[in-house]
Nucleic acid binder design. Structure first.
Length: 282
DNA sequence: CGCCCTGTTGGGGA
DNA sequence: ATCCCCAACAGGGC
């Protein structure tokens, strides 16, 4: 459930509670979590080290420990972090114990979440360079940059946004929201977007992600914050998961379709369907 | 009750 | 480059 805004929300809540603290223990009860490393190897590497900073890159949470030891956590679909959790919590996978007496529990029913150990700043750069593109909320995410990314990309705009190697952190929900705000149909090939459309898309990505951060990730109905509190407002989205409901702009019914293998919500009045290109003459 | 489908992600293989 | 399937589980519809 966490996309960039949700991971950022977790980071902001968690950072003041762990930064400057020493990790006293790490117990991994699910071997899948840190495969191919063993839980004991991760524990040995992080134990006794201080958390210098808790950062984020795309949808990854980055624990920067002493001696350039990095623990990189990804929550995938259903991962959650709980600070000082109650005793009986199902699907507990990893327990962090801090030297100040507090603890943190990684909970993940579906077990897609991962924790990886990276040694050295250079290895960290390599790790992200192979998987993540630009940070959409950083100044480098310019109209020119987005135009360069779209050039030569024949995939539908939705697939273009979901590819983490181009833009880091946009997931299925915020992709729908950004495309709606930019009035772009998810099926339109990225390399056939006009310059004004790409400029609008850049702004729409930023606005959509920032709206999610400003809502503390509470827009996703499943989202639990560090203290297990549920988001108060569900359904803050403009079109996502609003099949059949009226478009907030024009009132026509929001349609659901499958694009890039994911459920996709669109107002086909505001986001006109691309014309099928005539097959090349031969 | 059981079967089938869907899902907030990313990696690997075709 | 691009598409499809899969990981493992819960919940909803039929």
């Amino acid at each position: 459930m966490p996309e960039l805004p949700e991971v950022e929300t977790i980071r902001r809540q968690l950072a003041p509670r762990v930064q400057g603290r020493v990790l006293e223990a790490l117990e991994v009860s699910d071997p899948r979590w840190c495969w191919p490393l063993a839980g004991t190897e991760i524990a040995a590497a992080v134990t006794g080290r201080r958390v210098q900073r808790l950062g984020r890159r795309g949808k990854y949470l980055v624990w920067e420990l002493d001696d350039e030891v990095f623990l990189i956590i990804h929550l995938r679909m259903t991962g959650t972090l709980l600070y000082d959790p109650p005793e009986a919590v199902g699907h507990a996978r990893v327990r962090f114990t801090l030297a100040d007496g507090h603890s943190l529990l990684f909970v993940d029913p579906r077990r897609f979440g991962t924790g990886q150990l990276v040694l050295g700043g250079e290895a960290l750069d390599t790790f992200f360079a192979g998987r993540l593109g630009i940070e959409p909320l950083e100044p480098g995410f310019t109209p020119a940059h987005l135009r360069a990314l779209a050039r030569g990309c024949r995939s539908p705009a939705k697939a273009f946004l979901l590819d983490q190697r181009r833009i880091a952190g946009v997931g299925n929900i915020y992709a729908d929201e950004a495309l709606f705000r930019a009035r772009i149909h998810p099926l339109r090939p990225a390399n056939r977007l006009t310059s004004p459309q790409l400029d609008a898309l850049r702004d729409a990505v930023i606005v959509s992600l920032q709206a999610g951060i400003d809502a503390n990730g509470a827009t996703i109905d499943d989202f639990r914050d560090l203290d297990g509190a549920r988001g108060s407002f569900q359904n803050e989205f403009l079109v996502h998961r609003r099949e059949g409901e009226p478009c907030p702009v024009c009132g026509s019914a929001v349609r659901k379709m499958v694009v890039a293998g994911r459920g996709t919500y669109v107002c086909e009045t505001c986001q006109p369907r691309p014309r099928l290109r005539r097959p090349a003459a031969r």
